[in-house]
Each structure stands twice: as structure tokens, then as C-alpha cells.
Design a binder for these strands. Structure first.
Length: 291
DNA sequence: GTTAGGG
DNA sequence: CCCTAAC
């Protein structure tokens, strides 16, 4: 008779958020069943998770009613990271965005009873996007002797929005591409080779303001609904991160995410496979700008 | 058995 | 949180 009106602890909220990030919103029972979150949410039912998620989703929405979202200044860095990560993604109506967290763990075992495709979708699109910018820069600069990191950085940094420590990421990525033979490196200068263009050109079109009409097809309504939920959840997650009071924590999180991204870039081929799966999933009812 | 939504 | 219609 006592466990009623239990206030949600920070640990529980965190577990819920992580669970949604992994399984997607609406998979309350799966989250609850996942041993990763089972203990934190031991005293919560699937319906409780749903209610809590609904509350979290409404909280940041009490903004100006009709005005745009108040840009939280400092936290713009974190928000920006999320936006960049979301750059090439589904664009349903007006609410297109992505989760700020990247946690790609792809287990080859197919005996997993729970569906992990959600987290794959969130993460897989980072590598191709930056590769595209790199190739774009090299193509535009087109120096026969090659281009050094700084020049590449300057080009991308002006043409696109870049994360705080993009410079560091760029160096790492360039080395990787050179090691894979997708770029040619001499001294500290990089340039494209036949392999860069000939193979699977990972060119990602920028959504910009692609006002993708709902384009709902009668035969694929099930999947489109699912994606709406995904987007809503992502927005909520992004807001929650942005709304966090401690700016330092937010900055640290953003930093960590970038580090994760750098690591993830190493497995370009796996990422490509994941990207293909993402495409398969998303193009059923929504538009995906991925080539 | 689960989930979304209203109470 | 509980209740309930809908899947």
C-alpha cells in the first residue's frame, strides 16, 4: 500500500531515456524486459513508462505556443551536434530531427529477441555525411599537389556548420580515408584518386528545407506511423539534453559524442551496411536523402 | 498481452 | 496513477 505516487528518480528517467534510445518509443515492454534497464525500472510498469514519456514530451513544449523554439544559447553546441547528426534524415512534415546520442552497438547475433534497428538508424548517417563534405572540399579545391588539413577544414567550416572539435575529427577521418585508399596522401596533403570517385560515392544530399510532403502511401501506413513516433522521441530527447541546466555537463556530453563518432568512423564498411538498412527502413513512407 | 489516450 | 478502447 505504499508504492503509489512514487516520484521518478533521475536514474529512472535516465534508464527510460536510454531505453527509448535503444528500442524506440512505444516499445515499453521491451525496455522493461531488457536486463540493461530492468533493475532501474523494477518498480515501474510498461504503462508507467508510457505515462512518464508522455510527460517528458510535453514539458519542453510549453514554449511560446506559436513562436519558434527559444534557442538556448550556450546549449546550442549540443543542439547543433544533434542537428548535424540529423542532417540527412527523414523529414516528415515539419518535425524532423534526431537524437543527440550516438551509441552504435551492432551485435551480429540474430537471436536477439529485441529489435535494435532503432539505434542503428540514429547513428549510421554520420560517416557518409562528413565523407561527402570532405570529397566536396577536395573536389572544389582541386589542387594537383593536394590539400592540407587546414585548407580542407576551412572550406568545410565555412560551407557547413561543424562541431566544436571538428578539426580533430577531420584529421582523424582523413587519415582513415587515406589508409583505406580512398584518398591519396603525400606528406600532409590529401587529394582524391580514382578510388574516391569510382567506388560507391557516398554523396549525401542536404535536406536543406526539403518540405517533404506527408507522402503517406495507403499501403505503408504502419511504417509511417512508426517513424512519426521515432521523430517525436528524438525531438524530446534533444530537448531534454538542451534543457539541462548544467551547461558544463551538456558540453561534456557533446564532447563525448564526438569522440564516439570518431571511433565509429573507423568502421566505415559496417557503417555503409547499416546505412543501407536505414535506407530500407526509412524509405517506406518517408523520404531519405541518402545516395 | 500491449499500447495510446483520456480521466 | 487508474481505466478503457483499440490493436
Amino acid at each position: 500500500m505504499g508504492n503509489q505516487k512514487l516520484k521518478w528518480t533521475a536514474e529512472e528517467e535516465e534508464a527510460l531515456l536510454a531505453g527509448v534510445r535503444k528500442h524506440g518509443p512505444g516499445k515499453w515492454k521491451n525496455i522493461l524486459r531488457d536486463p540493461e534497464f530492468a533493475d532501474q525500472l523494477a518498480s515501474r510498469s510498461n504503462i508507467d513508462l508510457k505515462d512518464k514519456w508522455r510527460n517528458l514530451s510535453v514539458a519542453p513544449g510549453i514554449q511560446g505556443s506559436k513562436d519558434k523554439i527559444r534557442t538556448p544559447r550556450i546549449k546550442a553546441a549540443a543542439f547543433h551536434l544533434a542537428a548535424v547528426a540529423a542532417a540527412a534524415t527523414i523529414t516528415p512534415t515539419t518535425s524532423g530531427n534526431s537524437s543527440p546520442v550516438a551509441t552504435l552497438h551492432r551485435s551480429g547475433s540474430s537471436d536477439m529477441s529485441i529489435d535494435d534497428s532503432y539505434s542503428i538508424v540514429v547513428d549510421a548517417k554520420n560517416a557518409p555525411r562528413y565523407d561527402g563534405m570532405i570529397f566536396e572540399a577536395l573536389s572544389a579545391l582541386a589542387d594537383a599537389n593536394g590539400t592540407d588539413v587546414s585548407a580542407i577544414f576551412n572550406f568545410i567550416e565555412q560551407k557547413h556548420e561543424v562541431p566544436p572539435n571538428f578539426r580533430r575529427f577531420l584529421s582523424s577521418r582523413l587519415r582513415r580515408l587515406a589508409a583505406q585508399g580512398k584518398l591519396e596522401k603525400t606528406q600532409n596533403f590529401y587529394k582524391m584518386n580514382d578510388h574516391s570517385l569510382g567506388t560507391r560515392t557516398i554523396h549525401v544530399a542536404r535536406p536543406k528545407e526539403v518540405n517533404a510532403k506527408p507522402h503517406r502511401q495507403t499501403n505503408s501506413q504502419g511504417s509511417s506511423v512508426s517513424h512519426e513516433m521515432v521523430c517525436e522521441a528524438s525531438i524530446t530527447a534533444a530537448y531534454k539534453l538542451v534543457e539541462a541546466d548544467s551547461a558544463s555537463d551538456v558540453a561534456r556530453l557533446a564532447q563525448e559524442d564526438v569522440e564516439r563518432m570518431i571511433i565509429l568512423q573507423g568502421h566505415a564498411d559496417e557503417m555503409l551496411i547499416a546505412a543501407r538498412e536505414m535506407h530500407q527502413l526509412c524509405c517506406q513512407g518517408n523520404i531519405v536523402l541518402l545516395n
